[in-house]
């Protein structure tokens, strides 16, 4: 437990020691801000129109603003995650510090867990900064906060799951660029799997679609907390971390 905390703290610190972290937060905030603006603008426009046409019914803010925003944000996440995970192991392998970690009385699982949780914490910070936009919704309107919380939980779970795979890919190479490209490819794949059901309805297509991280994010964006989606993410996290531990072990045998 203590070893895990040691790794976790070191990793988190080294995220914020570099300007890259702030660049990622800024990038995410800008793109998020843009999507937020667009979603709100459409919402405002639509409500004006419906009012002019005499339909005075209150429009659902979650359905019009939060849901499309969250769907967009979950896709931006795919682009940010490789940047977060690329250095985790690749950098240690390149600089040789992996020898320090692996010759210290620490278990491989503790190293992997510490690094992954630090990455997830950093991603949570990225999400938290972007959430500042939503403050405006609460100032000028009264959205329901519970579905928003569910949506954010979904973003975090989806992020944690992709980060686990990114960590795994970073442990395969000593080149950060390759680690980033590999993680991006994995993220992209897990995203586009969802599209299969658009033109194919056979059983295999449903399975492939089920594997997509986006399929499981949709209910979260709606504000629905479904245990089957939580289970999907949690087991995907386990798989990613398990593969990483295995890859570290194999490093000893291959190196």
């Amino acid at each position: 437990m203590r070893n895990f905390l040691t790794i976790y703290r070191k990793e988190l610190k080294s995220y914020f020691a570099s300007w890259v972290a702030y660049a990622i937060i800024a990038f995410f905030a800008v793109v998020y801000g843009y999507f937020f603006y667009v979603a709100t603008a459409i919402f405002v426009n639509q409500s004006f129109q419906s009012q002019m046409m005499g339909r005075g019914f209150p429009m659902d803010m979650h359905e019009w603003v939060i849901r499309p925003l969250m769907m967009n944000v979950s896709v931006i996440g795919l682009f940010v995650i490789p940047m977060i995970t690329m250095r985790l192991f690749a950098e240690e392998k390149r600089s040789g510090t992996i020898e320090l970690l692996m010759t210290s009385p620490v278990r491989d699982a503790e190293i992997v867990l510490g690094k992954w949780l630090a990455a997830t914490t950093f991603y949570a910070c990225v999400l938290a900064v972007s959430a500042l936009n939503l403050v405006f919704l609460f100032i000028y309107g009264n959205p329901d906060w519970k579905p928003i919380l569910v949506a954010y939980l979904g973003l975090l779970l989806q992020g944690a799951c992709l980060l686990a795979f990114g960590t795994f890919i970073s442990s395969l190479t000593r080149n950060q660029i390759i680690a980033a490209a590999g993680a991006f490819a994995a993220c992209l794949l897990l995203w586009v799997f969802e599209w299969v059901t658009a033109y194919e309805t056979a059983g295999w297509a449903r399975v492939v679609s089920y594997l997509s991280v986006l399929t499981h994010f949709e209910p979260f964006a709606k504000g629905v907390l479904d245990s089957k989606d939580v289970i999907y993410y949690v087991s995907a996290i386990f798989l990613g971390l398990f593969l990483t531990v295995r890859s570290l072990e194999s490093l000893r045998w291959r190196a």
């Binding site: 790794i7 080294s14 040789g96 510090t97 992996i98 210290s104 620490v106």
Partner: peptide
Amino acid sequence: YLPESPPLYPEMEVREYLNFVARLK
């Protein structure tokens, strides 16, 4: 163990690094 190239984290200060290794050990 001191490998051929010392396993250092360039972004850390010396004391911070040694603290980290001490906890690790």
